[in-house]
Design a protein around this nucleic acid. Structure first.
Lengths: 343, 343
DNA sequence: TTGTAGGCGTTATCAC
DNA sequence: GTGATAACGCCTACAA
């Protein structure tokens, strides 16, 4: 193909086919092709193909006000739970002719706002946010401007937006019950940041089961970590050990915290699960290959992405749609990090 | 904000500021703001901000022919090497006002073509491809149509496109030398698919060091896997054991193959590194937490993304730019999967 | 320094 | 069933 070859547009095709541009437009649009005679339609399609015509989504977008593009905001793509969500989203969007603009905010609120601006400039038809905090200005402003959004994985206290989240209460229940059945009575909790729904809900669920006497509840055995990271898990677990209170198991609010716990445990000369049992949450990639393999709560991440994309498409098509909340059921995966307590 | 609020456009701002739209346009464009008097510029900026004006990148794109959008094609986002590359890409693009449309082809050539069409329809300014095969029709067609592209991680036999890849020969050399220094003489190679540059180059490098007598080279100890997956690694390693030839170490062409090797090894009742030493390639997340922790070749993935994005931006700005090849240096990370041979 | 006018490639609304 | 026309929102010669 010639370097200087001008890009073929709808008029070129129309001229070649001996029809008007609007006819070509009608032929190429599934909704309007029925207005055109079959003979003309076939001819136009043939010629368009021959000429290698590629409609400009930009021009169409300018005219129609729809970009068939969706923004996806991720706090940290290198956290292995997100790629699965993203895949589910993309597969679903793709089937409907939409494309995803993915942006990684690197856990920075400032970045989030810049990214939102950038996406709005590109006139995305809607947004999927995996970055929600319990109070979230970004979510609020999207709602205020009635931009179609769906929250995924985390949500806000207001539940004002359509959301697809995990059933955290159920998930923590699975972990707790598993430990209780093994015979654990003194169970600690390595919690996540309380400004996220996941951090708060998981802690709340744990407390609830404790207060319901599923085990010997001791508030001193609750530790909050400032972030869902290995280093915070390490710090949190170490501070737990420092307290000198007795416990035989730890429920971590996510896998990364559990990994940090592994480190602190090893450093203290203890072994998992011989001395302490540990459960995680999320079932990230390779959690089955650790030493010991991590017993954890598996979340249907791909499905989460699929559902979020489906809901967003509905919302785009019908902005008046009621905001809905989808809660997905996790399941427990028992591996080598949990065992009966020593005595 | 009112639900029915019309989106503010450049004319609205101009009217409010008592100037013409073209003046507003000039003010908001860094390249032309100097043409406008400071007083007017300040006023326009103030009013634009007050009115919440957000320029339409779509309209600007239609006019200028540039979308400030770049497509990124990834074979499988859930492979943990890619998120790091993507992050590097995004951070770099973002600084220049570009945004990335990420698409996961799910390792399917057919998907790749559909995605390319979709991206071309959106008039992306360029493309970063992590999906290259040694012969790659997609790459060829991009070059034929002079779409700016940069290949990342893998390349084609033709080297016809600008590329940012790892120095695989060097990396394999690091692994081999490490094993040789430990005293290994009979070393096997668990290779990747030969239709990718990484698969081929790593195998070639291994063979080269063998033929140069760095160790006792035995062609029977070369196994090709059909994909860079754990299951293929398992299959490959098992077939190696079936041959019954003696060897004390295995160099795997990537970490996933090595993991599959771990499985086959365990199943055969052998231990790593006691019976067989294993090295990986890539240094994926959590490779330090396996049993045993994997000795592997670390690749600067983030830097790879950064470089790729930088080159693409140069290419977009100067399409006549010479195609260049950047090779990044990996480093060896010694962990617990390698040790001196038994006797 | 600022305004005017035309057009980027579509599609929606007319008219025929 | 098809064609003509205007408009989406912006940028950029060119004119003043």
């Amino acid at each position: 193909m010639n370097r200087s070859a001008k890009r073929i547009n709808i008029k070129d095709v129309a001229a070649q086919a001996g029809v008007h541009a609007s006819t070509v437009s009608r032929v190429l649009n599934p909704d309007t092709v029925s207005m055109v005679s079959v003979a003309v339609a076939e001819k136009v399609i043939k010629i368009a193909r021959e000429m290698g015509y590629q409609p400009s989504a930009i021009a169409a977008g300018l005219r129609t006000g729809r970009s068939y593009t969706v923004g996806v905001l991720i706090p940290d793509l290198t956290n292995p739970i997100f790629p699965h969500i993203v895949r589910g989203i993309e597969r679903t969007l793709d089937q409907e002719g939409y494309i995803a603009v993915i942006a990684d905010s690197d856990n920075s609120r400032k970045n989030e706002h810049a990214i939102l601006d950038s996406m709005q400039a590109r006139r995305v038809d809607g947004l999927i946010l995996a970055t929600a905090h319990r109070k979230d200005a970004l979510v609020d402003s999207c709602i205020a401007e009635s931009i179609p959004i769906v929250l995924v994985n985390r949500t806000t206290d207001t539940h004002a937006a359509t959301e697809v989240i995990n059933d955290d209460e159920w998930g923590i229940g699975l972990a707790v019950e598993h430990l209780v059945q093994l015979g654990h009575r003194r169970i600690a909790f390595l919690g996540g940041p309380l400004d996220t729904s996941t951090g708060r809900d998981r802690q709340r669920a744990f407390t609830k089961y404790g207060r319901a006497d599923r085990f010997e509840f001791d508030p001193e055995l609750l530790v909050d970590c400032r972030a869902f990271t290995e280093s915070e898990g390490y710090r949190g677990f170490a501070s737990l050990l420092d307290k000198g209170r007795e416990f035989s198991a730890v429920v971590a609010a996510n896998d990364l915290l559990a990994l940090g716990g592994y480190d602190a445990l090893g450093e203290a000369g203890m072994q998992c699960p011989r001395d302490i049992s540990v459960t995680g949450f999320n079932d990230m990639l390779f959690m089955d290959r650790l030493r010991p393999p991590l017993t954890t709560v598996h979340i249907p991440l791909d499905e989460m992405g699929v559902k979020a994309a489906e809901l967003l498409l509905s919302l785009i098509r019908d902005p008046a749609m009621e905001t809905t909340s989808v809660k997905l059921a996790p399941r427990l995966v028992v591996r080598g990090s949990t065992a009966a307590p020593k005595h």
